[in-house]
């Protein structure tokens, strides 16, 4: 499956899904699809695969999820994670996150992009968001997370905030500087961080 995804070979990926002998769609996601995405995430982190491949892998996976179970409750959590981009139109990271979160069994609330810190804090408060992921590409947008975190902490103290994107990869101390609860190097790592936070909170 991993090779099919990395080769952006949708037909082969669907053939593998059709041949899967497990008892349910959830088994396929948990036993085949998520391990492939986890591995791709690790290889992205080590510089072995490209962002284009990560994005297309997530996109194909999401299509398979839709075909299989028509929704996003594969891992059985059914919990909601909100995703957002501050300040600019750089959406790719958020899109990858959404694909991986949906494949991993979460419902995704997409708050869009080019948001101001105040707007995002309003949305988080309105929806009582438990887990918020903020994706960035540019340094100014990453620095602006600090303002959003301050507002969210004030109005929605229970919300856990996970950040990710290029500026955080280039500066390991940036996540702490902006006050995030965690930093995901990859979309799959972000997914695992939320799962861990949920377990700790249970």
């Amino acid at each position: 499956m991993e090779n099919s995804l990395l080769a952006v070979d949708k037909n082969r990926a669907f053939d593998i899904m059709a041949q899967f002998q497990g008892s349910s769609g959830a088994d396929f996601v948990n036993d085949v699809l998520m391990p492939a995405l986890e591995s791709i995430g690790g290889r992205w982190e080590r510089g072995e695969v490209s962002l284009s491949q990560v994005y297309m892998s997530g996109k194909i996976s999401e299509t398979m999820i839709d075909t299989l179970i028509g929704g996003a409750t594969a891992a059985g959590s059914g919990r909601t994670v909100a995703v957002a981009v501050l300040e600019d139109h750089h959406n790719l990271g958020k899109k990858i996150l959404s694909s991986v979160l949906r494949t991993g069994g979460f419902l995704v609330k997409d708050y869009g992009h080019a948001l101001k810190a105040e707007q995002l804090a309003d949305m988080v408060e309105r929806d009582s968001v438990e887990y918020l992921m903020i994706s960035t590409l540019m340094l100014p947008a990453a620095l602006r997370i600090k303002d959003a975190v301050a507002l969210i902490r004030e109005r929605s103290p229970g919300t856990r905030i996970i950040v990710g994107g290029a500026p955080f990869l280039f500066d390991a101390s940036l996540a702490e500087e902006v006050g995030a609860d965690a930093f995901g190097r990859t979309a799959t790592e972000s997914l695992n961080i939320v799962k861990r936070m949920m377990q700790e909170a249970a």
Binding site: D88, H89, H90, M138, P140, L143
Partner: peptide, 13 residues
């Protein structure tokens, strides 16, 4: 073009 006060102007839609 979308200008911000502390970074390079970004492409809009």
């Amino acid at each position: 073009v979308v200008y911000i006060e502390d970074g390079p102007p970004n492409a809009g839609a």
